[in-house]
Amino acid sequence: MFTTVWTASPQRPSEGFTANWSQEGFWRQSLRQAVRLGAGGDRVRIRLSNAYGASPLRIAGATVARTTRGAAVEPGSVRRLTFAGAASAEIPARGEAVSDATELTLDSGDSATVTLHLDATTGPATFHAQAFTTSYRGTGDRLEDVTGEGFDEATESWYFLSAVEVSAGRTDGVALFGDSITDGFGSTPGANRRWSDALGARTGRPVLNAGIGGNLVLNDSAWYGEKGVHRLERDVLAHAGVSTLVVLHGLNDIGFSETDEQPTYVPAPVVEGDELIAGHRELIRQARVRGLRVIGATLLPFGGSDHWGERAAKVSHELNEWIRCSGEYDAVADLSRALADPADPDALRAAYDFGDHLHPNDAGYEVMAEVVAGVL
Rank of each mutant, 00 (worst) to 15 (best):
residue 2 F to M: 11
residue 6 W to M: 08
residue 10 P to Q: 12
residue 12 R to H: 07
residue 18 T to R: 15
residue 18 T to M: 15
residue 19 A to E: 12
residue 20 N to C: 11
residue 26 F to M: 09
residue 26 F to T: 03
residue 29 Q to W: 05
residue 31 L to T: 01
residue 33 Q to C: 08
residue 38 G to N: 07
residue 42 D to S: 07
residue 44 V to E: 04
residue 47 R to N: 08
residue 48 L to T: 02
residue 50 N to E: 04
residue 51 A to W: 07
residue 56 P to I: 06
residue 62 A to L: 09
residue 65 A to H: 09
residue 69 R to Y: 08
residue 73 V to K: 02
residue 74 E to R: 15
residue 75 P to R: 11
residue 76 G to F: 07
residue 78 V to S: 06
residue 79 R to T: 03
residue 84 A to L: 12
residue 86 A to D: 08
residue 92 P to S: 10
residue 93 A to M: 07
residue 99 S to W: 08
residue 101 A to R: 12
residue 102 T to M: 05
residue 106 L to P: 02
residue 107 D to I: 04
residue 117 H to G: 10
residue 118 L to F: 01
residue 121 T to C: 11
residue 124 P to Y: 12
residue 125 A to D: 01
residue 127 F to L: 10
residue 129 A to I: 08
residue 130 Q to F: 15
residue 132 F to S: 05
residue 133 T to L: 13
residue 136 Y to P: 02
residue 139 T to Y: 11
residue 145 D to E: 11
residue 145 D to H: 00
residue 146 V to F: 00
residue 147 T to C: 12
residue 147 T to I: 10
residue 147 T to D: 13
residue 152 D to T: 13
residue 153 E to V: 14
residue 168 A to T: 02
residue 178 G to I: 05
residue 181 I to G: 04
residue 183 D to S: 13
residue 188 T to V: 03
residue 195 W to L: 12
residue 197 D to C: 13
residue 197 D to W: 07
residue 199 L to G: 01
residue 200 G to W: 10
residue 202 R to A: 11
residue 202 R to E: 11
residue 203 T to G: 14
residue 211 G to F: 06
residue 215 N to T: 01
residue 216 L to H: 13
residue 217 V to K: 03
residue 220 D to G: 06
residue 226 E to T: 03
residue 227 K to Q: 15
residue 227 K to W: 00
residue 227 K to D: 00
residue 228 G to R: 05
residue 231 R to V: 00
residue 232 L to V: 05
residue 233 E to K: 14
residue 237 L to R: 07
residue 238 A to F: 05
residue 239 H to M: 06
residue 240 A to D: 09
residue 248 L to M: 15
residue 251 L to K: 06
residue 260 D to M: 13
residue 262 Q to W: 15
residue 275 E to W: 14
residue 277 I to V: 15
residue 281 R to P: 07
residue 282 E to N: 06
residue 282 E to D: 12
residue 286 Q to D: 10
residue 289 V to K: 10
residue 294 V to W: 11
residue 295 I to N: 07
residue 296 G to V: 01
residue 296 G to D: 02
residue 299 L to Y: 09
residue 301 P to F: 07
residue 302 F to E: 00
residue 303 G to Y: 02
residue 305 S to E: 06
residue 312 A to I: 13
residue 313 A to W: 12
residue 322 W to M: 13
residue 322 W to R: 12
residue 327 G to C: 06
residue 335 L to I: 05
residue 345 P to V: 13
residue 349 R to H: 09
residue 352 Y to F: 15
residue 352 Y to S: 09
residue 354 F to Q: 07
residue 355 G to T: 08
residue 357 H to Q: 10
residue 361 N to V: 09
residue 362 D to M: 13
residue 363 A to V: 00
residue 366 E to T: 02
residue 368 M to V: 08
residue 370 E to T: 14
residue 371 V to N: 03
residue 372 V to R: 08
residue 372 V to H: 08
residue 372 V to P: 04
residue 375 V to C: 04
